[in-house]
């Protein structure tokens, strides 16, 4: 599971940070279950939904959301999308694609639930919306995120949120199946 490794990576590369667990493993599980119920409530035809995780952090959440939806109602289609080729900051920082996009169906007319771990500036979501369009023009796109940490730079708003967490600009937010951690440089959170 790729998200599991993100804890390790952040801790290794940013040692002088103070970290605090803001969601436990249990709370993450319950948040995913709750979002699944909210999705099913708003979109009862769950079998026609396409739940798409954003590479890399959104993929495991999308898979678990789809699992819940299958138990609650009917299994949606699932996929993943890599937005590296659509980013607006190519050449401003290294952009390394993780894995190719996997879109199971022409999205034309479909309702897509786009899933990511953390919503921050909104730029990745913008890139994802552009990327989705190259797989057909969806009827609607909904956005589900585990953590909304604020500091939006674009007019983008999530439809389903695991938890709103106020953060500083230089905080590091890591989301994994084991929980959510906020690390802050040199201070207690």
């Amino acid at each position: 599971m790729p998200a599991g490794s993100s804890f390790v990576r952040i801790r290794l590369t940013r040692p002088p940070m103070t970290a605090a667990e803001v969601l436990t493993r249990d709370q993450v599980d319950r948040a995913i279950a709750r979002i699944a119920h909210e999705i099913a409530e708003k979109h009862p035809e769950t079998s026609s939904l396409v739940v798409i995780g954003m590479q890399s952090g959104g993929v495991w959440i999308a898979e678990r959301l789809a699992g819940h939806l299958a138990r609650i109602a009917e299994a949606p289609l699932t996929g993943s999308i890599d937005v590296s080729m659509y980013r607006d900051d190519i050449s401003m920082r290294p952009v390394t694609p993780v894995a190719p996009s996997r879109i199971p169906v022409d999205l034309a007319g479909r309702t897509v639930v786009l899933v990511d771990d953390v919503l921050y500036t909104g730029r990745t979501v913008r890139a994802a919306l552009a990327a989705l369009n190259d797989h057909g023009r969806p009827g609607a796109v909904r956005l589900a995120v585990m953590v909304d940490r604020g500091h939006r730079e674009l007019p983008i708003r999530p439809d389903f949120v695991g938890k709103n967490i106020p953060t500083h600009l230089d905080d590091e937010v890591s989301v994994g199946p084991e929980g959510v951690i906020v690390a802050r440089p040199g201070a207690d959170v």
């Binding site: 590296s84 080729m85 659509y86 190519i90 190719p100 190259d134």
Partner: peptide, 17 residues
């Protein structure tokens, strides 16, 4: 591999560059 996925699309074009 990413590029192969893009090339397999009906509209094989991305705005990357």
């Amino acid at each position: 591999d990413h590029m192969s996925e893009i090339n397999a699309r009906s509209v094989p074009k991305v705005p990357a560059l």
